[in-house]
């Protein structure tokens, strides 16, 4: 059978699976129309935009628009470093938390407690970033901030959080995990919900303990989902959430050394939004780096285990 499949050509194989082709068409068409067509806009990255001439008519200007990111060595190094390091930190800890919570909730679904807990954990997803920044301020404020109140009750010296860059990687991590742990675990929960229960029964009969079951059944089932998620996220290694890095930090200058990312920098530089060329250039830059990362890491994963690779 396998040999037979190999022999039939792409076209005859496609003709054989007309049903599949039909089911793929709506999704394919939507992507073509709404993801591929707009890529024309990336041309603006290489053009000196002129409103009367339009996107296609404007003059080419080479890599002029890319200078926004590459002008000052100090700043470029800093914002790229921050973006990449935060991506690593948030993705690693975030994924661990999401998987952990999914497993814990899964173990608790026998009673209502787990369900209600998860429902509560979803709450923070709906709090807009502006409001998160207000809540963060309530905790970290100088005068009447709650953390400082606690510190002073225990006789410790108060800390000016908004003036001290070194604490911010941790603060931002906590905020990120807080906002995403419930929501991010949803996808892993659905993966767990699909596990065939007979696997557990078989393990039970073999006398496996709970930790063993998690280790040998649950985690392997999640492996491909985790791997796919990280691979997909790699494409955004140069992207950062402006809500987290711009609003929660209140764009405080003194914290830039540990909090400013590429997107936050661009937001500062192009606040009026009138420079269409530079905006496109930044988007393209981020995409190209992301693309390189995904293709190379995917290649590595593919060599180890084809099932966990993206393509």
């Amino acid at each position: 059978m396998g040999r037979q499949l190999k022999r039939d050509s792409l076209i005859s194989n496609t003709c054989k699976h007309k049903g599949l082709l039909m089911m793929a068409i709506p999704g394919f068409a939507m992507m073509l129309l709404f993801s591929y067509m707009p890529m024309v806009g990336l041309l603006a990255a290489f053009k000196e935009y002129d409103y009367t001439l339009g996107l296609l008519g404007s003059e080419w200007c080479g890599f002029e628009n890319f200078r926004l990111l590459l002008e000052s060595k100090d700043i470029t190094i800093r914002i790229v470093r921050n973006t990449v390091l935060y991506w690593c930190l948030l993705t690693t800890v975030g994924t661990i938390m999401n998987v952990g919570i999914a497993i814990l909730i899964y173990e608790c679904t026998a009673n209502k407690f787990g369900k209600y807990s998860h429902m509560i954990m979803i709450f923070p997803t709906f709090v807009s970033w502006i409001s998160v920044s207000y809540i963060a301020k309530a905790f970290l404020n100088d005068g009447n901030g709650m953390i400082n109140n606690i510190l002073s009750t225990f006789g410790m010296t108060e800390i000016s959080w908004y003036l001290t860059p070194k604490f911010w990687p941790i603060i931002l991590l906590v905020v990120h995990v807080w906002k995403n742990c419930g929501y991010g675990s949803v996808i892993y929960l659905s993966a767990l919900a699909g596990i065939d229960p007979s696997l557990f029964e078989a393990a039970e009969i073999d006398g496996a303990s709970k930790p063993q079951k998690i280790r040998f059944i649950t985690l392997p089932m999640l492996k491909s989902m985790v791997s796919i998620n990280i691979l997909l996220a790699l494409g955004g290694i140069m992207h950062s959430n402006t809500g987290l890095f711009y609003q929660v930090t209140r764009n405080t200058g003194i914290l830039y050394s540990t909090t400013q990312t590429i997107d936050a920098y661009v937001m500062n530089a192009l606040s009026s939004g009138s420079d269409l060329g530079s905006t496109a250039a930044v988007t393209l830059f981020q995409s190209v780096i992301g693309c390189i990362m995904v293709v190379s890491v995917n290649w590595l994963v593919r060599r180890k285990d084809e099932d966990n690779a993206l393509f």
């Binding site: 200078r67 926004l68 590459l70 002008e71 000052s72 700043i75 764009n251 200058g253 003194i254 830039y256 050394s257 400013q260 920098y265 500062n268 530089a269 192009l270 420079d275 530079s278």
Partner: peptide, 14 residues
């Protein structure tokens, strides 16, 4: 323009 933006960034830091 991009140099001015870089300067502005330094200024808004301090």
């Amino acid at each position: 323009m991009s140099k001015i933006a870089a300067c502005e960034n330094v200024i808004s830091e301090y």
